Computed example of a mutant assay.
Amino acid sequence: MFILPLPFLLSTIASIASLALLAGGIWMVWGWFTGALIAVAWLWSGIASIAWSLFGRMIVLAFYPRGTDSPPTTHADAGQMLDAPDGSRLHIEFDGPADGPVLVLTHGWALDSDAWYSVRRELAQTYRLVLWDLPGLGRSSQPADRRYSIERLAEDLRTVIAQTGNAPVTLVGHSIGGMMMLTLARLHPDLLRTKINGMVLMDTTHTWPLKTVIGGGLMRLLRWPVIEPLLLLTIVLSPLIRLSNFMSYMNGTSHIVNRLTSLSGSVTREQLDFASRYNVKDTPSVIAKGLRAVLRWDETATPGAIRIPVRAITGDVDKLTKPEAGIEISRLAPNADFVRLAPAGHNGLIEQGPRYAEAIRQFMRRTTLAAS
């Protein structure tokens, strides 16, 4: 999940190593059978390399406990398509009672609306949920011109909000979803007076993201000489990168990277595999374009201008948007509070979905009492 340079760099290294491991294994086996390599150790080394390339994921997952959680393995067929201003076709779904308070759920980059599965299960009993896939992710198509910016994504969110009718809505955004909400608040402050009655910002930031990521100093140093060229190369070589990402998933290195960068030690086997499948599902060029947009984003001044209720939620071991970012948002926004959940990483909604849902539910109760 490449929302910031840290997992992107590590995943790139893992993908290259995965292709090298498979190619090396094939070369050793071929060399032994053709006589170019004599020692039988070459044969066994080649077989081991190929076997790890194809089945290493099973060994990695064996180190994690089984859970009672059941992440989805396929997309649901429900939903409808919505035409967005940028020319994309957005997949949108509705769940929960039609007369319930409305929650618009916006997922993080490199995920899709399926990532809300356990939050959805908890909240759909009471609230009217609106879930959608960001352009180029899940079941939504890319913008017509294949260009990305947080401002354009915010306009997509505005289009989704318009589908909720006259009812007031509470926005819930994870990672880039929270960034989009802040940008929407700046671009369309009238919505905060007429339509949006609250915001829940989950594992996100308000300032230039390289200021609130673990190792931000190193990431800033590497941005122009390493990260930006790699992102452009990923866009150009997207089909090859997709193959290498698939091999990284099969041999388990993508699982290791996701665990180290985006999840906590409490993650279960099923949750880790679910999160890592996005490395296969996502189109690399789309992810790279979104990351380039994130690196050009900053809404430092925006939280101070938001008068509606705000809740910042963060995982205690979030490495991609450190908890300090959520604390600062709650300090800057006049009517905000902060909730830290443990143990949870950047994608805590996958590993601690019921607890994130409860934090959202408590926020809804607080805002309802305040309104009355």
Rank of each mutant, 00 (worst) to 15 (best):
F8G: 05
F8A: 12
L10N: 01
S11Q: 15
T12Q: 08
I16G: 02
A20W: 14
W27T: 13
F33K: 10
T34D: 06
L37P: 00
A39Y: 08
L43P: 06
G46R: 02
I47A: 07
S49E: 02
G56T: 01
I59S: 09
F63A: 09
R66G: 14
T68A: 12
T68E: 10
P72V: 10
T74M: 04
H75I: 12
D86F: 05
R89C: 06
R89K: 15
L90Y: 03
I92V: 15
D95S: 15
P101H: 07
V102A: 12
L105D: 02
H107G: 06
S113D: 04
R121P: 01
R121T: 08
L123N: 09
A124M: 15
Y127G: 12
R128G: 04
L129N: 10
W132S: 09
G136L: 11
L137H: 11
S140I: 11
S140E: 08
P143D: 11
A144W: 06
Y148V: 07
S149P: 01
E151T: 15
E151K: 13
A154P: 03
R158H: 09
Q163A: 11
T164F: 02
L171R: 00
V172T: 11
G178N: 10
M180K: 02
T183D: 09
T183M: 02
L184W: 05
L184I: 12
A185C: 11
H188M: 12
D190S: 14
D190L: 13
L192H: 15
R193P: 05
V200F: 07
M202H: 02
T205Y: 00
T205E: 04
P209A: 05
V213A: 10
G216H: 10
M219V: 10
L222Y: 03
I235T: 11
V236R: 13
L237D: 00
S238N: 09
I241M: 14
R242D: 11
L243A: 13
S244L: 14
F246E: 10
S248W: 13
M250Y: 15
L260K: 14
S262K: 00
S262Q: 14
L263I: 08
V267E: 01
R269D: 04
R269C: 02
S276I: 10
S276K: 03
D282V: 12
T283G: 08
I287Y: 05
A288Q: 03
A293M: 07
V294F: 05
V294I: 14
T302H: 09
P309I: 12
P309M: 10
P309E: 01
P309R: 07
V310A: 03
I313R: 06
D316F: 00
L320I: 02
K322I: 07
E324P: 00
G326W: 00
R331C: 08
A336Q: 07
D337V: 04
L341D: 06
L341I: 15
A342P: 05
A342C: 13
A344W: 06
A344I: 13
N347V: 11
G348A: 12
I350A: 13
E351F: 10
G353H: 07
G353T: 08
P354V: 12
R355Y: 05
I360T: 03
M364Y: 07
M364N: 04
R366C: 08
T367F: 06
A370P: 05
